[in-house]
């Protein structure tokens, strides 16, 4: 396992795009965080509270989920489209790597990157939380730490989705376009318009990107304004619960990895 992680590190370390994405994430998470000060929040939502425990976990997590999507989701795309563009996937296999090892080396690296992204998220949250909370109560500090594994899973999931699309179309530009198009248009239209109108029910929320997004949602559950009128009328929850989100997105990640594995085993390189 260490050997495969080292192999991937040899490939990534000198890669300029990788460095830029990592730098972007490390700078953007703490620097974009004060954005909340300029956002127009409803009265129930005190601006002060999003920088203090426990809500700092969800707000930083929500911001971080955008960053992991753009930085590491795209990195997931490039980590496979590059191998196709340079024909190095083919060369790696000829050199002696097995197809399973190739896939494993990518997944292990996704795990490592997600782990570092999550640790950094915790550091930022603790930093902001401790400096902005007037009365530190341990139970409040720890109240939303359930988001930590979700944050990890979300980052890992985004990387897998990016990798999957890159793996299918092999070209980076097209893959990035499809990733954005699917995430922001196709799934939403299918889910909220077509599926909802035909069969409104909890399954509407079980789509891959939606379940990944709901792992670390903006803390709107308690806010009435977030509830779409139609959804309320049909008694459909707007968000998945944490448990649901973890289960559903784990299933999707499993399905995606399984499909990549089966295609990779059969494909001519």
């Amino acid at each position: 396992m260490l050997r495969l992680l080292q192999l991937e590190w040899l490939k990534l370390k000198p890669n300029a795009t990788f460095r830029v994405f990592v730098l972007l994430y490390f700078l953007a998470l703490p620097l974009f965080f004060p954005i909340g000060l300029f956002m127009d929040f409803p009265k129930e939502f005190s601006i002060l509270s999003i920088y203090s425990f426990p809500d700092v976990w969800s707000f930083a997590g929500y911001l971080g989920s955008w960053l992991t999507f753009f930085c590491f989701g795209f990195l997931g795309v490039l980590m496979i489209t590059n191998e196709y563009a340079f024909k190095t996937l083919r060369q790696n296999i000829m050199t002696g790597l097995t197809r399973s090892e190739f896939l494993a080396s990518k997944l292990i690296m996704f795990g490592a990157i997600s782990l570092f992204a999550t640790i950094y998220y915790c550091i930022v949250v603790l930093g902001y939380g401790y400096s902005n909370t007037d009365f530190i109560i341990n139970s409040k500090v720890l109240e939303q730490t359930y988001l930590i594994p979700s944050y990890f899973l979300q980052c890992f999931g985004y990387m897998c989705v990016g990798f999957f699309i890159g793996f299918l179309v092999k070209r980076s530009g097209l893959a990035v376009f499809l990733l954005l198009f699917y995430t922001f248009f196709i799934e939403n239209i299918f889910r909220q318009v077509i599926h909802f109108n035909i069969a409104p029910g909890p399954l509407v929320n079980y789509y891959p990107m939606n379940s990944l997004e709901d792992l670390v949602p903006l803390p709107l559950r308690q806010l009435k304004f977030a509830q779409n009128q139609a959804w309320q009328r049909d008694n459909v929850e707007f968000l998945l619960t944490q448990t649901e989100a973890i289960l559903v997105s784990s299933c999707w990640i499993g399905i995606i990895i399984g499909m990549i594995y089966l295609i990779l085993k059969r494909r001519d390189l």
Binding site: R3, Q6, L10, K11, P14, N15, F86, R90, Q91, N92
Partner: peptide
């Protein structure tokens, strides 16, 4: 077939690692 952004030594290291 090599990684274009890497130098000869680093590329050979990848091969040796595999």
């Amino acid at each position: 077939n090599f990684y274009p952004y890497m130098n000869a030594v680093d590329n050979l290291k990848v091969v040796a690692h595999i």
